[in-house]
């Protein structure tokens, strides 16, 4: 689980992996496909960038198998910014994750946005020094990912749509299921664990803390400052924005506006102010119009 430099200095512990996500709280992580976009994101106040080959909207439009990004592109982005760089690996593709770790990526996203490499198993994330973030649509899924070693969770939403409705559903579901756990009697938690298909000890920990043991961000369909602020008010601890920025009319300004809206998510005056003059938002697709097999949130289990 961890490698050590000397008996008294240890890397790759759960604490430094989960702690890294704590430092991103209240921030916005932006999808970028070039070093130039990464600079725009950093200038706008992003806490991290997610390096990928195509933003989800393009993955959706172009189809085909979607994989880990070209290492040269990731190197270019790492060289361009001083903020943390994340990158996506396919679900279950532990070698893509090994490659990302060797490139010095700061966080790996085992992501349903890419084509899954294994339809049964996710990556054993305890085996890595680099921390992982994983998507979840409900509490059971989140707890299974944490059991596999995920150090951060993001609600999935429906990536590449600009439609925030699935993000709200997933965030409300996870938060609602956590609230329900906190109301259960101790002897009811055994059945709750069975129903959630998650380990009893973890279920018990969530029931007593009233929160996940790792940071939870939101993702999937966030396109405006108001979308981001709503997700924060619904209990997200930070926001991933994918296609919403670089598929919009004025990426730099929209990126900065979303950053401000996340910090002042409870202040409608600020959100109103930053929402002015942003130009066109990404066009978007209604999730309801996407045929079931093309819904990314249903990948992962």
């Amino acid at each position: 689980m961890s490698s050590s430099e000397s008996p008294t200095s240890v890397t790759g512990t759960a604490r430094v992996k989960r702690g890294m996500a704590e430092m991103l709280k209240g921030g916005v992580i932006m999808d970028v496909v070039t070093p130039e976009q990464a600079k725009i994101a950093e200038d706008a106040g992003a806490v991290a960038v997610m390096a990928l080959e195509r933003v989800p909207a393009d993955i959706r439009a172009q189809g085909g198998v979607s994989r880990m990004s070209d290492p040269d592109m990731i190197d270019g982005i790492i060289g361009a910014v001083s903020i943390p760089v994340m990158a996506k690996a396919r679900i279950g593709h532990f070698v893509e994750a090994q490659v990302l770790q060797s490139l010095g990526v700061d966080y790996v996203d085992e992501s349903e946005v890419l084509t899954p490499a294994d339809y049964a198993n996710h990556i054993d994330k305890w085996a890595f020094t680099v921390p992982f973030v994983c998507g979840a649509t409900n509490l059971g899924e989140a707890l299974r990912r944490i059991t596999e070693g995920a150090a951060m969770i993001r609600s999935k939403g429906e990536a590449g749509t600009g439609d925030v409705s699935n993000a709200t559903t997933h965030m409300r579901t996870i938060r609602g299921e956590i609230r329900r756990l906190t109301s259960l009697a101790e002897d009811e938690l055994f059945v709750a664990a069975k129903e959630l298909q998650a380990p009893y000890d973890l279920v018990k920990e969530v029931a007593s803390a009233g929160k996940l043991p790792v940071v939870m961000f939101t993702a999937g369909g966030i396109a405006t400052p108001a979308d981001a602020a709503m997700m924060m008010q619904l209990g997200a601890e930070g926001v991933f924005v994918g296609s919403g920025i670089f598929k919009s009319g004025n990426p730099a300004q929209r990126a900065a506006a979303i950053v401000k809206a996340v910090t002042f998510h409870d202040d409608p005056d600020v959100i109103a102010k930053v929402s002015r003059g942003l130009g066109e938002a990404m066009v978007g697709i209604n999730v309801e119009e996407i045929p079931q097999p093309h819904r990314l949130a249903e990948r992962g289990w």
């Binding site: 430099e5 240890v10 890397t11 790759g12 512990t13 430094v16 890294m20 943390p84 700061d106 020094t129």
Partner: peptide, 10 residues
């Protein structure tokens, strides 16, 4: 260093 070098020590 980067995140992979993050550590705990006394």
């Amino acid at each position: 260093g980067r995140q992979v070098d993050s550590f705990e020590a006394d």
